[in-house]
Design a protein around this nucleic acid. Structure first.
Length: 486
DNA sequence: CGTGCCGGGGT
DNA sequence: ACCCCGGCACG
C-alpha cells in the first residue's frame, strides 16, 4: 500500500502528461498492474498502427504504470491525454463523416460553413431551387458581395478568412444564381440549425476535398486566427443545438412560413431553443422532413421546404405560389434523425456525397426504419461486422485497447473499433414523428436488435466477483465488456 | 437462473 | 466524464 502511494506521488510529476488511461481506475491500482499492464503494453504496438500521436501518451502511461489513481492525473494527465486523443480522433471522424455524409448531416456542425463557404458551386444550384425568388437576407449580403467581387476561381480558393460585410450591397441581376447560392450558404453558416440539407449532387470533387481539409483544419486548429468569424460562431454553446425550431414550423404549415429563407436564417437559433424532449439522447438528433410520396425520398430540413417540394413536384402546383391548402401536410412527415448514426446511411439516400469516393462506411448503419429509405438493410448485419472489421483493422485491436475505451473518457479511444459501434441502435432510430398520426406505417419491429451473446469469457467470469476490481471498467459498469470482446 | 449489457440515473 | 444499477435478453 505504501508503495502504491509512493509511486503515485512520483508519477504525478513525471507521468502527468502521458498517464492518460487508467488513471482513475481507482480501485484496481495494485492488482491491475499485473494483468492489464501486460495488455496495455501490448496495446502500444497495436496503436502505433495508425495512431501514432497516441503513442507518447500511452507510453507515458504504461511507463508510469499509472498506479497513480484518480487524484492528480485526473486533472492533468487525463485531460491532457484525453484531449489529445480526442482531437486526433475527432479529426479522423470528421474526415470519415465527410466522406460519407450528406449535406444534411453536415449542417449539424457549424464547421461546414467553413468549407461550404463558397466551395460547392454545384450545391448552389440545387439549393436554389428551393428558394426561388427569395430575397437574400440582408445578413447574407457579404456573401453576395463576395460573389460579385471575386472571380469564381478566386472565390473558391478564398477561405472565409476575412470578410468585409457591406451592408447595403444589392445583388445585381445577373448574379442571381450566385446570389441565391450565397444566400443559402450564408444562412447555413449563420445558423447551425439551418436547413437545406441533402442535395448538392454536383459538387465537384476538388471543392469537396478542400472543404474537408478546411474542416479538419478548423477543428484542430482554432489556434490559427485564420477564421475571423470562426471563433465567434463556433463558440456558440454547442455545435448543433437540436432542431426543435421545426416544431414551430410545422405546427402551422398553412401559414407556410412564407419564406424558408427568413425562417432559416433565424439569426438566433437559440431563441427557439426550448426543449420539449427532456434531457439526453437528443444530442445529435435532428428533425427532418421526409416526403412520403411514393418513391420519393426527398428529405428536407424545413417544413416549408418539404411543403414546397410536395406542392410543386407532386401536387403540381405552381412553384411560385406560396399558397398552400395544407394538403402537403399529408405527404410529408417529420422524422428525427440521429446525425451520428445516419451519417453513412444518408449518404446513400441522397445523390450527394460528391466528394470523396471514400471507403464505404465501415459500420453498418444502425437499424433505422426510415420507411422507404434506401438504407442498407442491415438485419443480421451483426455477423458482418467482424468480418469487415478484420479487413480494416485487426480485431485484436479491439481487444487490446478496449480496456481503455471507457477510461479514455468518453472520448473513446476507439480506433475504429467496429465492435463497439455495433449497436447504438435504439438511440439512433430515425424516429418517425409525432404530429402526423396518419403517416408512417413504420412497423418498428427492430426493437430488440440485441447483440447475440458472445462466446468470450468476460471479466466477470475470468476474475470472478471477488476480483471485481480487476474487471475492465466496462464490466464494472455493466457495460459491454471491453477487455474480452467477441 | 446466471450472465452480459442496454438504457438511464446520479454526481 | 465517471460511475452505478434496474432490468431485460440470452443461453
Amino acid at each position: 500500500m505504501e508503495s502504491k502511494y509512493i509511486v503515485e506521488k512520483s508519477s504525478v510529476g513525471t507521468g502527468a502528461g502521458g498517464a492518460d488511461f487508467n488513471c482513475r481506475t481507482g480501485r484496481s491500482v495494485l492488482r491491475d498492474t499485473r494483468v492489464p499492464s501486460v495488455e496495455k503494453t501490448g496495446s502500444m504496438s497495436a496503436y502505433t498502427n495508425g495512431a501514432v500521436p497516441y503513442k507518447n501518451v500511452m507510453d507515458g502511461g504504461s511507463a508510469a504504470e499509472i498506479k497513480s489513481e484518480r487524484t492528480p492525473l485526473k486533472g492533468n494527465g487525463l485531460s491532457l491525454g484525453g484531449r489529445l486523443l480526442h482531437d486526433v480522433e475527432k479529426n479522423g471522424l470528421l474526415d470519415q463523416k465527410d466522406t460519407g455524409s450528406t449535406g444534411i448531416l453536415k449542417r449539424a456542425s457549424p464547421t461546414h460553413c467553413l468549407g461550404v463557404n463558397g466551395q460547392l458551386p454545384g450545391g448552389f444550384m440545387h439549393l436554389d431551387i428551393r428558394n426561388p425568388g427569395k430575397q437574400p437576407d440582408p445578413t447574407n449580403n457579404f456573401r453576395v458581395a463576395q460573389g460579385q467581387i471575386l472571380p469564381q476561381t478566386e472565390r473558391y480558393s478564398l477561405s472565409s478568412s476575412h470578410i468585409p460585410v457591406p451592408r447595403n450591397r444589392k445583388p445585381s441581376g445577373h448574379a442571381d444564381k450566385e446570389v441565391m447560392a450565397a444566400t443559402v450558404l450564408t444562412s447555413l453558416s449563420t445558423s447551425p440549425l439551418v436547413h437545406y440539407p441533402s442535395s448538392a449532387p454536383t459538387a465537384p470533387e476538388p471543392a469537396g476535398r478542400a472543404w474537408k481539409e478546411v474542416l479538419s483544419a478548423s477543428y484542430s486548429s482554432s489556434t490559427s486566427g485564420n477564421w475571423s468569424w470562426d471563433a465567434s460562431d463556433h463558440s456558440v454553446p454547442s455545435t448543433p443545438s437540436p432542431p426543435l425550431l421545426n416544431d414551430t414550423n410545422k405546427s402551422f404549415p398553412l401559414s407556410s412560413q412564407g419564406d424558408d429563407g427568413s425562417e432559416d436564417v433565424t439569426e438566433s437559433p437559440h431563441f427557439m431553443f426550448e426543449d420539449p424532449i427532456p434531457r439526453k439522447r437528443k444530442n445529435s438528433m435532428k428533425v427532418m422532413f421526409k416526403c412520403l410520396w411514393k418513391n420519393c425520398e426527398k428529405v428536407l430540413s424545413t417544413s416549408s421546404g418539404i411543403q414546397r417540394h410536395i406542392r410543386t413536384i407532386h401536387l403540381g402546383r405552381s412553384s411560385d405560389s406560396d399558397y398552400s391548402d395544407g394538403e402537403e401536410d399529408f405527404y410529408y412527415s417529420e422524422i428525427e434523425v440521429n446525425m451520428d448514426s445516419l451519417t453513412e446511411g444518408l449518404s446513400n439516400l441522397t445523390p450527394t456525397s460528391p466528394t470523396t469516393a471514400g471507403p464505404p462506411p465501415i459500420f453498418p448503419p444502425p437499424l433505422t426504419d426510415v420507411p422507404h429509405s434506401k438504407h442498407i438493410n442491415m438485419n443480421g448485419s451483426q455477423c458482418h461486422a467482424p468480418s469487415l472489421l478484420s479487413q480494416s483493422a485487426p480485431s485484436t485491436l479491439c481487444h487490446i485497447r478496449t480496456d481503455h475505451a471507457y477510461q479514455g473518457a468518453t472520448t473513446h479511444v476507439r480506433t475504429v473499433s467496429i465492435g463497439e459501434k455495433r449497436q447504438p441502435a435504439p438511440s439512433s432510430h430515425a424516429i418517425v414523428n409525432k404530429n402526423h398520426p396518419l403517416i408512417m406505417p413504420s412497423p418498428k419491429s427492430t426493437q430488440g436488435a440485441r447483440k447475440p451473446r458472445g462466446e468470450a469469457k468476460k471479466c466477470r467470469k475470468v476474475y470472478g466477483m471477488e476480483k471485481r476490481d480487476m474487471w475492465c471498467t466496462a464490466c464494472r459498469w455493466k457495460k459491454a465488456c471491453q477487455r474480452f470482446t467477441d
